[in-house]
Amino acid sequence: MDLVVINLIDGLVTGLLLFMLSSGLTLIFSMMGVLNFAHASFYMLGAYFAYQISLYVGFWPGLLIAPLIVGVLGALVERYGLRRVHQYGHVPELIFTFGLALLIEEVVQFIWGKNIVPFDEPELLNFALFSIGGNAIPAYKVFMIFISIGIFLALLYVLTRTRVGMVIQAALSYPRTVEALGHNVPLVFMGVFGVGTALAGVAGVIAGPVLGTFPGMAFLLGSIVFVTIVIGGLGSLWGALVASLLIGWLTTFAATSTFEFASLLTAIGLERPEDLSESYIRDLWTLSLPQIGPILPYILMVLILVFRPFGLFGKRDV
């Protein structure tokens, strides 16, 4: 029972972290039709910038400054990179972001090296807030939860309750009409791209100390973010949230479970053969749920694509 509560909390942390990445990506995709392969690289940049800033002035200013720099970088990439490539169609855009992801990884390695950099939690939060059955919940994780929820509420407010949000939503579905009404749609695009990458930057800053800050961190998270927005439905903030939490809990519970497929096989009346190498399903006999945990989100994605192609909350087709 203790482990279930702990897992709920851990899954929440993972899920919210994913949400901060996927919310920006889903907005960018639905608005510009660009699958931004470099999104996770902006997340990595956030972590590295915050690390560099923390060397001089500590963690807290970094939490504010690093995402700002990442956001400005993102906006510049949109203005001077993507916008130029845009006229040639979607494939060049894809290739552009893909190249950008590789470029950022190389630049990061060039400046900070290939080693893991010692980017740590701030002293202030470096203690266990409470513990359940011997499992400590670090204060930093609770802080991560609050930051992510705060950002979600702020985004929701801006998108649904403010004038800017209305324009963005309108530009999502009817860009030409919005332009005809006198709004500067390219500026809106640039703004959304900047904010989206800044969100990824925030995620990087708060995840860096926990998940490790190294050049491979973008690669590790890159693919799962795409899975999240496909499951959630393109362009839907709620979809991104629900899908992120779903994946967070799914992977957490799978990793801590002790379920073995052998017990399932015995339950349906099969007998474990003496010599496993002779059996056609020998892999199933030795497989356990934690081992296949990391592919569960992908299985979920395939199921979603088959049965509900526009995702859980999406309104249009992938």
Binding site: T14, V210, I224, T252, T256
Partner: peptide, 11 residues
């Protein structure tokens, strides 16, 4: 491929 080892640590 493991992003977060927390669940393993819990176990």
């Amino acid at each position: 491929k493991v992003k977060d080892f927390t669940p393993y640590a819990r176990k």
